[in-house]
Design a protein around this nucleic acid. Sequence first.
RNA 1: GCCCCUGUAGUGAAGUGGAUAUCACAACGGUCUUCGAAACCGUUAUCCCAGGUUCGAGUCCUGGCGGGGGCACCA
Length: 566
Amino acid sequence: MFSDLLRGEIDTVLSSMGLSGVVFAIEHPTVITHGDFATNAAMVAAKAAGKNPRALAEEIVAALEAKKIVGIRTISIAGPGFINFTLDDSVFRDEVLRIGEEGMHYGEQHSWKGKKILVEHSSPNLFKPFHIGHLMNNAVGESIKRLAEFSGGSVTAISFPSDISLGIAKAVYVVAHDGIEKLHACTSEKEKLAYLGDCYVKGTQLYEESDTVKEEVRTITETLFNGTQGEILSIFEECKRINLDYFVSITSRLGSHFDAYIFESEAGKVGEELVHSHMDDIFKKSEGAIIYEGEQDDLHTRVFINKDGRPTYEAKDLGLLSLKFSRYEPDLSLFITDHEQTSHFDVVIAAAKKIDPVWGAHSVHRTHGRMTFKGQKMSSRLGGVPLASDIIDTLADEVRERAQDLPVEDVDAVAIGAVKFAILRAAAGKNINFDPETSLSFEGDSGPYLQYTAVRAHSVLRKAEAEGYTPCVGDCTCPEGEAALIEKMLARFPEVVRLAIEEWAPHHIATYLLETAQAFNGWYGNTKILDTGNPSIRYNLAVTKATTDVITRGLQLLGIAMPSKM
RNA sequence: GCCCCUGUAGUGAAGUGGAUAUCACAACGGUCUUCGAAACCGUUAUCCCAGGUUCGAGUCCUGGCGGGGGCACCA
């Protein structure tokens, strides 16, 4: 990356002036006429040097100019002491050609090369419908997983399905009470899922209303936790199977694949044992329960084993952590949940560190916000929460209206691209106000906008090829004038990817892709690419090709597929 | 009450301590007999308040005010 080269050169110059260890920035000026790169090095170092920033800047510039760095056209000083660099157009043009050569590999990083990365995301409650909240987790999680792969790491994706809880026992109670025949009478998978969803809601209601139900649910909970063979367990297993199959099908429709599952039931057992084996040093009894006193870490107390002797979510997550590290020995363990669980995990990690410091040191928690609906927080227990499949289907209908006769996979690519992009374009961790009218747009800052840009560019390339013109490789006749914004934007892809990986923040990619698509569309608007009289026609095709490559790769990193047409 | 997150055009969002704060939607006005108008070009409008640190603050610190979340046996 040119910015790294520049950083190295500036560093050397500063050191030679006796100013080593200066932390300076290299950035793209907001106004492109200022140059391609700018540094604040002179301003930052001014104090230590005992000089005024502009005077120091002049010395630095003189030293840099003496080096005659290849690729730099002009160096200038501006404002309070910025040093601006304008690059030779050839730098950008070489980069465009490099993209042509590297294609989907362009921008690949090596920061985690040779390291094992474990990513856990999209963990469902197997007895609750897969709703819009899961969609958010999946969008963020899948993108982080792909960023991890692009960082050079060897990645394992897992999910942590919840298959044991009081809520599940309530649902099983209703299924058993209705009779398993009712489930079997459902003719389609969809019907079965809807029925099981209803059971979950109904179970919660009945449990609140009646003491006898409470008693029966209690027995069922016992059975499930102990794994006692019998009718209840087989009903449970069947329901779990149906829900898990659905989870696999919906997440694969969304573009996710999981290498393995760790179920809450197994994590619960492991966690329970861990807590019991660290009773005196880490955990303690209190009011019949077993707790971890988070106050010692400036956190708060959490219950790990409840007074019935069963592991709570805390112990389950502790067990999960233990299983993750014993099975996969990751150098980095990323997990994604919604942000309401932040303080829960702070406590779990604090306790886990005392068992094994590596568990804490190698774990990174990334969060996403909640979907709010007209300002109201959505809860699946209250019903009325949009299901993931409903949202996708509604959008798919709209896609079909805009473009008839699209293959199913293209319809899905656009519909799912719209939802995922709406989620990923904002920094994760903040709530997203979901307004069906505007949130899932096909225009403006949207997934389909990016897809459209690439598809249209691709269509130009096809037409050019039919007329015997292909993007040039290596030996090119480049245009006379200055490099266009699009050419400059393309070259930024690697640094954006690096930032996204450093922060595990997909939205940097999203923002960049929008800017790049805008730059391309602006260029497209006033450039006749297929101008056979233009000597640089094949270079212009290379720019077009590089744009489709970068957008396609960027969308892939966001977990969004590219339709063949739209 | 304590702790964490958060406050940027009418709306939804970007913005590694830097120069003239960016993008979209909405509104208004243009551009398809021409490589795909899900596009392009143009106009209007913004950093919650008060202190502080700094050569420089939307960004860091302190204190308010508003929003969200967490705080003992749900996940």
